[in-house]
């Protein structure tokens, strides 16, 4: 367990460092995820150590958004007079993006003939 946590934090630290060093448009933890994926692919031993702990952490990923989301409540007045239009824009665009993304995925997959479909 402590080995897995150490590896995860090391990947994040390396990711943060790389992201800043190379001025990447991607945040450090996302770079860390790519590094961890590379490490797990290169070494079955690392994959075996990280897998159970990673799965455990991910099971409660929703919990981690709670503190930031509580902050949103205090700033709802920031939407001001634009509140209605902005909320409409968020709902319409999020629903449309999900629908279009999923439909295009299925459509292109049929086009190229996907073995997993």
């Amino acid at each position: 367990m402590h080995h897995a946590l150490t590896l995860i934090l090391l990947a994040q630290l390396a990711g943060e460092t790389l992201s800043r060093l190379l001025a990447l448009p991607v945040p450090g933890p996302v770079v860390g995820m790519a590094l961890m994926l590379a490490a797990m692919t290169a070494s079955p031993r690392i994959a075996g150590v990280v897998r159970p702990v990673g799965e455990g952490i991910l099971r409660h990923i929703s919990l981690l958004f709670v503190p930031a989301a509580v902050g949103v409540v205090g700033h709802l007045d920031r939407l001001g007079t634009d509140g209605g239009p902005v909320l409409a824009a968020l709902i319409v665009s999020t629903a449309l993006a999900i629908a279009v993304g999923a439909l295009v995925f299925v459509w292109v997959q049929k086009l190229v003939g996907d073995p997993d479909a």
Binding site: A11, P29, V30, G32, M33, L37, M40, G54, P67
Partner: peptide, 24 residues
């Protein structure tokens, strides 16, 4: 509140790294 809840908040980074597990 956030000062108290920052342990939870901090985990957002490691959890992003842990997304490598289902990806793998």
């Amino acid at each position: 509140y956030l000062e108290g809840a920052q342990f939870v908040h901090f985990m957002l980074g490691p959890v992003t790294v842990a997304l490598a597990v289902p990806l793998h």
